[in-house]
Design a protein around this nucleic acid. Structure first.
Lengths: 334, 334
DNA sequence: CTATATATGCTCAAAGTTAGTATAAGTTTC
DNA sequence: GAAACTTATACTAACTTTGAGCATATATAG
């Protein structure tokens, strides 16, 4: 019967752990994904049209079954249907179409998560964290790797195109870093053979023996799950700017610095403190609780809570980002 | 076999015709959609995993087959999988999951489109066009209809929730009109029984005989295609603000007023002329061609073209909207 | 020639943003 | 207990962006 496929639902479940954005992963064998060799992947499972009333519901059921975690905020990301996304397909496996979701939860200490394990999301994307300045991996590995990839181009115009693309996505030359282009950067590295998935998926980009060495460019995930995670990161980074989704990740009350650290962790860059406070206060996103935090450190801060009232009046507020670190990088062209 | 479903690909194909945004529709029988009674719907067809390398490719093939139109810019919108989206499903039909796409093309005069017909997209969403001020249908039909829907709520808190939702989405009270919330508005009207699809899909919201009358709230489409169209409108309205997608719809050269009219037509509101020019000029989105348009009207305008250079340097420019018409509406609560 | 329509350059004030300084109120170290 | 450090919060000066309008240029219609 033509047109019949299997739909897989996969979830990028994000929580904040202090200043670390974490993603829930499961060992591949748990979610029924063969061929992963014990590698990690996103919680996922097939959509069952007779049992699941909606796609969302199917997703929640699978996540609950694999991790015991009840999901709150859930948002559909993208549907991936390219051929050979799953390496098994080349060996005659079925053609899965997978619908990726982004879910935000508050991290609860100690609670058992079934087979789930929380992981720093920058573990798979070390080049995305600019909070301590430009990540070394860019200068050490990515820039030279991309420069070689540019040189490998067959023709001159193709070489030029590759350079422009590399400059644009990784902020070489006088382009500036756009923290939302997570997917573009991952796909560029994939095409350039600079992430482990390229070799695993069987592309033969060159006979260069250097391409066979294990790559230090972040921890790979099974199938195309790292691509789905990249999609989720980009979407979340975009969304915190115009919708108050950050509060889905925060405890009920928090200091303004905690809020700022959470935003910085997701956005992957530092913000200007005074302006950040002015923005969130001015937009009416938070309201004082009157309580004072009993923390270590300096002067005690007042605790705030999310002000639900905003959602009704204003069009679509989010946490604006008064970015401070605007570094210029040198070109990959030399 | 569990988890096996049929995937349908549907396309919202948009083109500009002077100052009218048009969407390509086909008669339902053409796209193999029974039960439409000759109603119109989006070009669509089943995804074939053995024949189609990617979802995009499948979509392009279906559109080409039904309308002969080659697609340029294509973007995935959303995957719809709720039960009973297709009325036939209640009668034992299969469970379709449909992936909606947005495509932008330049309208070519006279060219045959197979079974396709261009339609003003406001024909199905008359309340979305604010270019000539607040549409009458809002005061005449929607506001009173929603007020009744609020009153029908079972409990007081539920009634309050309905009022807040109506005020927020339709800019009653002191909320302001957000032109991107096309989907939210359509879904509200659907739930309130104010569009033809509610009755057709078999929901019985009340025994009120007024609910049986044909509704003047825009032309319905088959299945959930009007919902997909609403998703596309919202996405496109959002996207023109931060990516230069508007130029996919423009001829190679155009006057600034033509550009402004196109943006206004999509955004559904008027813009301030001088500020609009300053913005597009200042952002470096366009460059002069040196040529002068030979039009009727007043002083001849200079012709501009899209400046591809911007894409390389700046992060992600789009056409900002210096909105002029910011009307306040009265509340539905009375 | 006059009225009218459109194009385009320029100004001006209000509002918002960036990047600071200054000071207050705690904790940690010695 | 004083010094050093950390964090919170108020305030300000310089700059940029935005909204709204005026003025003038160049066409067509009559």
């Amino acid at each position: 019967m033509p047109g019949v496929v299997m739909i897989e639902l996969s979830a990028v479940i994000v929580a904040m752990d202090k200043e670390v954005p974490r993603v829930l992963l499961v060992r591949a064998d748990v979610s029924g994904n063969a061929g992963g060799d014990g590698q990690e992947g996103l919680p996922c499972g097939p959509f069952d049209p007779s049992g699941h009333r909606t796609l969302d519901e199917g997703l929640r059921r699978w996540v609950d079954q694999q991790t015991g975690l009840p999901l709150g905020y859930v948002e559909q990301l993208y549907t991936f249907g390219d051929r050979f996304r799953d390496p098994l397909e080349r060996a005659g496996g079925p053609r899965p179409v997978s619908v990726g979701y982004l879910a935000l939860v508050r991290k609860t200490e100690g609670k058992s998560l079934g087979e789930g394990v929380w992981n720093d999301w920058y573990r798979s994307f070390p080049w995305e964290d600019w909070r301590a300045g430009p990540p070394e991996i860019i200068d050490a590995v990515i820039a030279p790797g991309l420069a070689q990839w540019c040189e490998r181009a067959a023709s001159r115009p193709e070489r030029q195109l590759r350079r422009e693309r590399a400059d644009l996505t990784f902020a070489f030359g006088d382009s500036s870093w756009d923290n939302e282009r997570v997917l573009e950067r991952y796909e560029l590295l994939y095409e350039a053979g600079l992430v482990a998935e390229t070799a695993r998926d069987g592309a033969t980009l060159s006979g260069d023996p250097r391409d066979q060495r294990p790559l230090p460019t972040g921890v790979p995930l099974i199938k195309d799950h790292r691509r789905i995670l990249a999609t989720a990161m980009g979407r979340l980074r975009a969304k915190i700017k115009y919708r108050p989704v950050i509060f889905e990740l925060m405890p009920p009350s928090f200091t303004l610095l905690q809020l700022q650290r959470a935003v910085e962790a997701l956005a992957g860059g530092r913000l200007h403190k005074q302006n950040f406070r002015r923005l969130v206060a001015h937009e009416g996103l938070v309201e004082r609780t009157g309580q004072i935090s009993a923390q270590t450190g300096g002067r005690p801060a007042e605790l705030f809570r999310f002000s639900r009232g905003v959602v009704l009046k204003r069009p679509a507020p989010g946490v604006r980002l008064p970015v401070r670190v605007k570094p210029r990088r040198k070109s990959s062209r030399k």
